[in-house]
Design a protein around this nucleic acid. Structure first.
Lengths: 205, 205
DNA sequence: TCCCTATGTGACCGCGTGGTCACATTAGTG
DNA sequence: CACTAATGTGACCACGCGGTCACATAGGGA
């Protein structure tokens, strides 16, 4: 985490540093991101950076933390609906809002994508922690779906989690494709979720 | 592609070079892989390497090409079953055999994983080409499923492709986890495929 | 004004990288 | 044996990296 010196800085300068770090970590995964590039673009002496952060990883952790806090806040309205809508509607809301987050804060979004693919050992531990949080959140959702009868009790809960997590990650990767307009992407998300909801086997109803 | 000199080499030396390149590209993504490390471990002079390949990327492309050729050959028996089994059985066979490939040739497998996550522009083009091939193969499978009536005609074909591809990629990432034994992983693959086959909405049958 | 502490700075360090090149070695041919 | 062409070699190059440190600057209290 940043040294106290960093928080003594005027807000404007803090934002400047954060912004350029965000730019770099959005463009490159941790290992390939260049601290020299960050300080040069932010017009900060490299020595100064080491007054604020212990090292490159310290800066990276700080950026990732801020990014995920922003995303959590952004997704809060979805969780507030938890009691009001069913499992499938909630999943749809969740993916739609994640998509809006990626649209609205593409740099933040790209940092999460790079973070998720990281190979660094210490970073991977952090990833596992975040994954645990997601599993818990999702399990809660699924449990509600099962209790209310909207989700079939036959479903293997681990497998369901696996599928939804896989699809969520793939959808997120697709968020990057800016050639797709908002409406059609929302429709696409719903098509994908329909496949999961209904399955592929024909129904006789 | 390799220079002619490379193919003039005795097979043993070619294999030596390939093996150590494989090791490196299995451990690191292209950008982080070290050519110096490859030549030093293979006990080859660095200058020699540049007699065989134009540059680092040339070597990488060759390794990736060889890896995918091996994988294609390995999966051929699955495609040979195309006319004999239905869509869901074929999907199961496909994932099972991919899993066996990862088990049997972990280095080859890891190279494909790293390849798929690469950020290099030229490499990404190659990825898109391979993705196209997969889409075609899968569309064929799905078309057969639709024609034979085993897959519901309501399904949005693009969305189905998306879901299966996402799940395939996630399963592949999971192949790395060697703590899971073979039988339980095969069972897990089938649980996941069952979720896709049946969906999550309860059935009244 | 002086002093002390906190902060800013950029030249510099050691290192590993991908790539080169002048030269040594080998193999094939007459 | 001698000549030629192909192949092997590793010291070397320029570069960019993360990180350091001796020193410059600024600001508040006595």
């Amino acid at each position: 985490m940043p040294k106290p010196t960093f928080f003594n800085l005027p807000e404007e300068k803090r934002n400047l540093i954060f912004h350029h770090a965000l730019l770099e970590f959005a463009q490159f995964p941790y290992e390939q991101a260049s601290l020299s590039a960050i300080v040069s673009r932010a017009a900060i002496a490299k020595g100064s950076m080491y007054q604020y952060f212990a090292d490159k990883k310290d800066l990276y952790k700080y950026v990732v933390q801020e990014v995920y806090q922003k995303k959590r806040e952004f997704l809060q309205p979805v969780w507030d609906q938890k009691e009001k809508v069913n499992f499938f509607e909630l999943a749809s809301l969740y993916y739609q809002r994640s998509w809006h987050f990626a649209r609205q804060y593409p740099l933040y979004h790209q940092v999460t994508v790079n973070f998720w693919d990281s190979r660094d050992a210490a970073v991977r531990e952090e990833i596992l922690r975040k994954k645990e949080i997601r599993i818990t959140e999702f399990s809660d959702m699924l449990e509600l779906g099962l209790l209310s009868g909207v989700v079939t009790p036959e479903a293997d809960k681990d497998a369901v989690w696996f599928v939804y997590h896989a699809v969520a990650k793939a959808l997120i990767d697709n968020f990057l494709d800016t050639s797709v307009n908002a409406e059609s992407h929302e429709a696409y998300i719903n098509s994908v979720l329909t496949v999961l909801e209904r399955g592929l086997r024909p129904r006789k109803e």
